[in-house]
């Protein structure tokens, strides 16, 4: 992974996003970790609109971590829109949620999630989970653009 690689964190809770950044850094992630605070901002970012007007939407992030319960446009809707656009549909999207409800999991996969992770409450487990995630998706996994 290089410094140019970008990880997108779609997460409305600043404590959660800070913990995630801490955990990623502890795991040795050196790239950009960009936090988008709600579903609407996420869509603006991906499609170069609003506050992210003019962003080159051809620049594809290395990994997207998507929380399901986010304001304005919820996680599943965001996923749906990412998957229905030909520029964004190949972005690896991993659901990172508190929800262990099977209907959420099924819906996420139906809409094209690449993986589904439940946020552990215990911080050690949390760090462990994000380390495994970073190792796999950022190092081993091949994406169409890498």
């Amino acid at each position: 992974m290089s410094k140019k690689d970008e990880i997108i964190l779609i997460e409305d809770n600043p404590m959660d996003s800070e913990l995630a950044i801490k955990a990623f850094r502890k795991a040795g992630v050196i790239g950009v970790i960009r936090v988008l605070n709600d579903g609407a901002e996420a869509l603006d970012y991906f499609f170069g609109m609003g506050k992210h007007q003019g962003r080159n939407s051809l620049f594809i992030p290395k990994l997207v971590l998507l929380d399901l319960k986010i304001p304005k446009v919820n996680g599943l809707e965001v996923l749906d829109l990412i998957r229905s656009n030909r520029f964004t549909r190949t972005i690896p999207v991993i659901i990172f949620s508190s929800s262990a409800v099977s209907s959420d999991i099924v819906e996420a996969y139906k809409k094209g999630a690449n993986s589904y992770l439940i946020k552990p409450i215990n911080f050690k487990e949390y760090c462990h989970t994000l380390k495994l995630l970073a190792d796999y998706w950022l190092s081993f996994n091949k994406t169409p653009y890498s």
């Binding site: 404590m15 913990l19 911080f123």
Partner: peptide
């Protein structure tokens, strides 16, 4: 769960 995660995370 979210605040709880913050408590455990930050105390750790």
């Amino acid at each position: 769960r979210a605040p709880l995660r913050a408590i455990t995370g930050f105390s750790e």
